[in-house]
């Protein structure tokens, strides 16, 4: 079980590429690092519930992420590729999140890897 203040990484996994699925972990958080705010409780795993399969209870956590960092981590090589494809998007659609702004998201335990 995770505790308040634990640093975690959201799994960099894309079950969508392997077949039909129902995932409650937003794409923009896959592979991102955050901090556990608190445990919200245990809930039946929606990934099974959605397909009427037996669904065991899993711990659900509120996890906090630095918001500007989610959109500003692209390295130089990524930017070159993106500029070729969607030049105006990158130039004009910067995030308006300010320093210190955060995003808090409900994530299930099986999507979180504890960091040292």
């Amino acid at each position: 079980m995770l505790a308040e203040g634990d640093r975690v990484r959201v799994k960099l996994d894309w079950p969508e590429t392997r077949g039909p699925c129902h995932i409650r972990t937003p794409h923009y958080l896959r592979g991102r690092e955050g901090v556990v705010e608190r445990r919200l409780g245990s809930f039946r795993n929606p990934e099974d519930l959605a397909f009427a399969r037996p669904a065991e209870e899993r711990d659900l956590y509120h996890v906090r992420f630095d918001l500007p960092a989610i959109w500003q981590e692209a390295d130089a090589s990524e930017i070159v590729v993106c500029e070729l494809i969607e030049q105006t998007y990158l130039l004009e659609d910067e995030t308006s999140a300010g320093a210190g702004d955060v995003i808090v998201v409900e994530l299930f335990e099986h999507w979180l890897e504890k960091l040292a």
Partner: peptide
């Protein structure tokens, strides 16, 4: 003032 965006993704 800090902005806290809460993305309601699951059971709450």
């Amino acid at each position: 003032m800090q902005l806290r965006v809460v993305d309601s993704t699951a059971d709450y």
